[in-house]
């Protein structure tokens, strides 16, 4: 499982300033577990998407502060590191149903947007390479769609907020932008609405009832006879049989 690596080269790392030796191929997370740390906080999906394990570090003789997800970042010799599993940031409550998808609504919720001094510290620290300052700028211009697009890979770890001179909760603001874009600015899917209506009027009731009554053998036959939509076709493909449609 996770810590059964063949004993290999050990390298020194400094966890909150204290020296440990760990296998050189380990991630920060596995290295910390290897030394005996047991995570309560600072560990979530272990797959790089949940934002629980953000770590900050610097390298020997280098003043630059770097960041990474502990579950994704491989240790380096003489790395000085700490985790930042939580960072306070004000999140505003809003009523999604009645919030207008307009710049003014975002400004009203988060007037601190305009405290951004465009220092770019947020973008530099982002472990997901999200262009944080750029989406903040887009929002200041009132471009919600652009901000939604540019913040899409955000994992809401909060490192941006931890570095912000203007004390913005960037990732909370971006969440509002994405929801307004997804539900209010982009057009709704008409085919989806049509399907809902079809189901409501009971269009598939008989066909489904027939399947419910079918014994295993008949189900098998129907299954094997399914017409398969070819992989390389576009939206224009139509099946030949109309049963079940």
């Amino acid at each position: 499982m996770s810590t059964n690596a063949t004993v290999e080269n050990l390298v020194p790392i400094f966890i909150m300033g204290k020296r440990y030796e760990v296998p050189e191929t380990f991630t920060i997370m596995k290295a910390m577990e290897h030394t005996g740390y047991k995570f309560l906080r600072g560990c979530g999906c272990r797959g790089g998407v949940c934002g629980a394990c953000s770590a900050v570090y610097r390298k020997a003789g280098d003043y630059h502060i770097r960041s990474g997800l502990a579950c994704q970042t491989v240790v380096e010799p003489d790395m000085y590191l700490a985790q930042l599993p939580f960072y306070p940031a004000l999140r505003q409550v809003y009523d999604y149903a009645t919030t207008e998808a307009a710049a003014a609504a975002v400004f009203a919720l988060y007037p601190e947007l305009f405290r951004c001094v465009a220092c770019n510290a947020c973008t530099k620290i982002c472990p997901m390479e999200v262009q944080v300052m750029d989406y903040v700028a887009a929002l200041k211009r009132g471009d919600i769609l652009q901000a939604a697009e540019q913040s899409f890979d955000c994992i809401q770890c909060g490192l941006c907020a931890s570095r912000c001179m203007g004390e913005l909760p960037q990732y909370h603001i971006a969440q509002v932008a994405r929801r307004l874009a997804g539900g209010k600015l982009k057009p709704r899917a008409q085919h989806l609405a049509d399907m809902l209506a079809a189901i409501q009027t009971g269009r598939f009731g008989d066909a489904l009832a027939d399947l419910r009554r079918a014994d295993k053998d008949r189900l098998r036959t129907l299954y094997e006879q399914r017409e398969l939509e070819p992989e390389m076709t576009g939206e224009e493909w139509r099946p030949q049989a109309t049963v079940g449609l």
Binding site: M195, I199, R226, G244, L245
Partner: peptide, 14 residues
């Protein structure tokens, strides 16, 4: 969700 080629019927079979 695409009624011209799909339905809960085919989803059920799958």
């Amino acid at each position: 969700t695409k009624g011209e080629k799909d339905s809960p019927y085919f989803h059920y079979l799958d």
